[in-house]
Structure formats: C-alpha cells, structure tokens
Design a protein around this nucleic acid. Structure first.
Lengths: 342, 342
DNA sequence: CTGAAAGCGCTAACAG
DNA sequence: CTGTTAGCGCTTTCAG
C-alpha cells in the first residue's frame, strides 16, 4: 500500500463543482465575495474528493510557508538535562498551531551544523526563526541576520555592542536572583554564597549580577563558578565549604546545581535549612520537588516564554506594512516558590 | 531591513554561467554527465550569486519534501517530566540531518489536534512520520494509515489484532524488567513488589509482564498500579507498605516512580537498600543519580532508539522499488546499571 | 552531453 | 461576483 493515491487537485474540485479554479481557490482560502450557492457547491466537492491544498504549489506563489524554524544550539547541557526544553517547545507549539503554522526543529551541535542551518534558512523554507541558548560569540545570529529572516531570541543575546533591533524574550533573571538572595537575608542569613551558571550565557551573568546587587561588598570568595550541572554544584559546594566554612546560605544558579550542592552539604553533615539555607532557580519540577529537602527556588514560566516568543514572531510576520518594529525585548517576571530548603 | 532580497533563481545562475537551466539543475543535483568544464563554471556562478534552490518549487515537481514529521502525543506525562523526549529528538535529528531531511515537530494534545495533524499529514508536506507515545486506542495510527504515509512508531503500538506490517522501535522492556527482578532476587530478596507504569501503554504492560515472568506465583498484592509519575510512586509505596509490610524489594516502572517510592520509604524509616532494595527503569540521569541513595536502574539507550527510528524511516523512503518491507519491529537491549539502591 | 519545452498545483491580477 | 490568464522556480523527458 505504498501507492500514493494521486491526490485531487484544485482543477478536479473545480470540474466537479462546475466552477473555475479561481473560485475554488477563493472558497478554500476563505476570500470574501463568492456567492453562497457556489461556495456551498465547492465545499461539497472538496469534501467528496477529500481535497487538501498542495502546500508546495501554494508556497511557490505566495512565498509564505506558514512554518517557523526553532533553532536550539547544542551542546547546551540544560537542554538535555532538564525538561526546560520540552516546556518551551510546548509553549511555542501551542501558539504556532493556533495560527496554523508548523514548527520545524533545528538542533545544532557543531560548526557543520551551523552551515547547514544557514543554508536551510537561506533556502526559504520558513517564514521566521526562534532561536535559543545562544552562547557568547555564537555565529548563529550572524547567519540568521544574513538570511534576512524575522527572528526572536529566547534569552537575551549577548550583543553588548548590539544593534537595538534585536527581539527577545527573557526571564527576569536579575530580579529573580535578587529576590532569592533577599529571601535568604530575610531569613537572618548573612554569609550567602552563590554558585554561578555557565558564565558564557547571559542568564548566568544576570543571576550573578542580581546576587551582587544585594550582596554588594560581600566577601568575593563566596562566589564560585559553576556551569548549571549538578556535578558543578557538588564541586562548587565543596570548594565553598573549604573556603568559607562559616557560610550559612547558598543561592545556586539553577535547581540542578542546587541539588548537587545539597548532596555535598549533607555529606558534610550540614543540615538544610538549619545550618545552611539553599535556594535554586527554575523550579524544574522533577528536580525541585525531589530533593531532600524540597527546594525553595525561583520559578520562571517557561511555557509562557515559548508562547510569547512565537506570538512576537507571528506578529512580526503579519506586519504586512506598518514598519513600527515590535518591542525589542520582553522580560517576564519570576516568582519565589518556597519549599523546605530555605 | 525587512526587504527580502529577491533570491537568485536557477535562471539567473544559468545566465551567468552561460548555460541552460537544465544544466544548472543537473549540476546542483549532482547528476552525472555534465562536462567538468561546464560544471565548474556553474558551480562558480552558484557560489557568486549565493544561489540556494527553492524547495517549494522543487517539491512541486519531485513530490519529495525531504522532511519528516515527528508526532508526539500529549499529554504524555513522561514527555515533559523527564529528558526522555529531548534525548529521542536528538537521536532523530542527528540521523535526519545526516540525510538532509528536516524535522517537523507536531505536538498533539486533544481531539482537535488530531484532526489538524491528519490534515497536515494528508497535505503532503512530509515524506513520512515518526510517532511516539501511543496510548491504547489512540486515533492517530488510523489517521496516519489513511494519509498513506510511511511511518515508524516509537514503542510497540498496542494493536493486538494488528496487521503485521507495523514498523516500530522499542526497548526490551520485558527483558529489562526480568533483569531487574532477577537482580533483586540475586541479592537474596524474596518479597519483591512492583509499581507499574500507566497500563494503557505497552511499555508499562511489558515491564509488568517481565516482572511476572520471574515472580510467577507471587502474592498479587505485591503489584500496585502507578502511572510513571513520582506522585504515583509515593502513593503506591504507601499502599504497599500498608498491604505487605514484609516486602524487601521494589521494582518501579521508571526512575521517577522509584524516586517517589524512595521518599516514602525514608519517611517510614526503611533503609535502602538494607531493608528494602529498589530498582528503577530508564536511567534518567538527572533523576537516577540524584536520588538518595543513587538508583540502581535499567538503562535504555534513548538516543539510539530515536536514531534507529529515523534510519528505518529513511530506508523505507528510499526504497524506490524493492517491495521487501523493512523489519516490522526492532527491539533494543537494555542494561542494568548498578548504583546504591539495590 | 546539452538545450528546449512542458508542466507540477496554485494564486493573483485583470477582465468581463 | 466569476472566469481567464499568467506565471512562481524547478525538474524532466525529448530532441539535437
């Protein structure tokens, strides 16, 4: 049954309905101005024949594809270490679907992939792109710029010297970090350490900045660099315990890191939160609820971020004319979720 | 800069190289039989103009899209609760990319989505489909069958009365479960309980069957139904403790469930593995290594599953003629990973 | 080995 | 309001 039954064409429907192709096209595309009687006849013919428009033919003339590329730059540890990625995709998918757009997923791992992606984007298969997980000096933005595709970034890109017209959606990493640290301070802690994320990503830098906003003038040895993995959380925690045995709180750049830190704390006989209070970031459910004790953390609405990215892009695509660019950056709020660890 | 620079066409390249469109097409598509001198000239022209073929135009005539749909049926708890999904996607993406195929992601949530997916598939946008997470009596297979698209399923579909020509890739769930239970028995345990997964999925049923293979004749109260979530693991564990206080081992249908069980065990003062040994399934890293104690579990190579699915589909698509169908089912082996919990 | 010509299925002016 | 007429950019016989 590999026989691909030759699908009916517009022509066939037109013949059956006794009208011209143009009329069928109008009905199918919902154009106004077709007498109801005819429209009805056409609809019946479509139904009977099981007609489905050929997208390739349509794209050829409209130059629209109703498809958006989602580009995820790997190896992005977080992407495959937690459900972050899936959540965001879900948000994007929902929004895209609601507007009859398809989601073309492009995962990139190395240089070659970048070239491939560049070619793909240039090939005009999609109307726009959603891009994630940029690291500092990633070549992707350049490639995309060159392809001249409307693009929305997930997470603030690190273009310090940047042009102002970059559209992105980000969480309020800095504000969330401040909340976390203030919460710790509010608990009466004073020697609050911070385990950072991978500092080649703006999210990690922003969280560190938030920490510093509140802890200005604190002992710099209270900050140790991590990379968002649980392993880095363990390593960093050990180092912290060695350097500053007196610390009484830790703000970890994400939940995975916090989980690692928690383990080391327990190993060393420090009780959480009695001796050391711990706060994470992300509120990655299967992690945050699973730790011992459950993690107090900063939640960001991942799915909403995805949805918003898609919405911004679609809006941009629909702007047939009006040249008033969309907002260049949207920052979503975060909320502190209190569990047992702090 | 929304000006979409009109991309060069075959025509333009032909003009520049001083040949016909047909010749350019041959060179671009790597057809044999173009004098090297001309071919070279064409390649240069392509390079200079930055020509990239228009896929829509090409598809219109070839009826190939070099694109594959990946359909994930939600709400599939596991999909968003663990990195399973991402891993599998990565495997698929790699394989597809290696063969210049694109990945179109279709997430479905409810009835409406099914219709939409059916339309999409029928619309001839993709050459084939990869389908995941089928539950019993999911309408998807029917829709796909109707669209007449070559398809490979992830996980054995539950078509008991089924036609023999279903192609799927699955893990050896039953064998893995047997290994897990035997391991427990080998540890000297005898009252081995099982917390099942969602029994409307074949993976859960197969794991239960594996358990029964080894524990034939065991007290039926040792089996409690779960649904692959950590919450169900907690609930089930509580129930088990109530029913069979003497149990000395638990085989959980997946790591998340095991993590939940572990928590309840600790709550009740049972030491793991001394009092109760626990084995999970999946080897979902961020979970399995994070539990207290780290989880002994059955590992399946998720990424390889994805890669294999893609490979089977591509092979099917390339079969221009030979009607010897591909293997109807491929089952990948699992391995027991020993950590501290058993 | 290369070019000319005929569409693939659809939309979008433009007439009527 | 509806039909006619051109293509969109590319592949693919079929001649030469």
């Amino acid at each position: 049954m590999t026989e691909t039954a030759p699908r009916p064409t517009l022509e066939a429907v037109a013949a059956r309905a006794g009208v011209s192709r143009a009329t069928v096209s109008r009905v199918v595309n919902g154009s106004e101005g077709v007498r109801e009687r005819l429209a009805e006849r056409v609809r019946r013919a479509v139904e009977e024949l099981g007609y489905v428009p050929n997208q390739a033919a349509r794209s050829l003339v409209t130059r629209r594809h109703d498809a958006v590329a989602v580009i995820v730059a790997e190896p992005e540890t977080r992407v495959f270490a937690d459900p972050f990625f899936a959540r965001q995709l879900r948000g994007i998918s929902k929004e895209l679907t609601a507007h009859d757009n398809q989601l073309v997923l492009l995962l990139t791992e190395d240089r070659d992939d970048h070239e491939r992606v560049g070619r793909y984007l240039a090939g005009g298969h999609v109307d726009g792109a959603l891009v994630f997980s940029l690291h500092i000096d990633d070549p992707l933005p350049g490639l995309i710029q060159r392809a001249g595709l409307p693009t929305v970034f997930g997470g603030r890109p690190d273009w310090s010297g940047g042009r102002g017209d970059v559209v992105y959606v980000d969480s309020d990493n800095r504000g969330g970090a401040r909340d976390a640290v203030r919460h710790l301070l509010g608990l009466g802690r004073s020697r609050v350490a911070h385990i950072t994320g991978a500092l080649d990503q703006t999210s990690a830098v922003d969280r560190l900045d938030g920490y510093r906003d509140v802890m200005a003038g604190a002992d710099p040895r209270l900050v140790v660099e991590g990379d968002f993995t649980a392993a880095s959380g363990e390593r960093a925690m050990r180092e912290l315990l060695g350097r500053c045995p007196g610390l009484d709180a830790v703000f970890a750049a994400n939940d995975l890191t916090a989980a690692g830190a928690l383990r080391v704390l327990r190993e060393h006989g420090r009780r959480v939160p009695e001796d050391v209070a711990v706060v994470g970031f992300d509120d990655m459910l299967p992690i945050a609820e699973q730790t011992e004790p459950p993690l107090t953390t900063v939640r960001q609405d991942i799915e909403e971020m995805g949805r918003l990215m898609a919405r911004l892009l679609l809006r941009e695509l629909d702007r047939t004319t009006g040249t008033d660019g969309p907002p260049s950056g949207v920052v979503l709020p975060t909320t502190l979720v209190r569990r047992a660890s702090a």
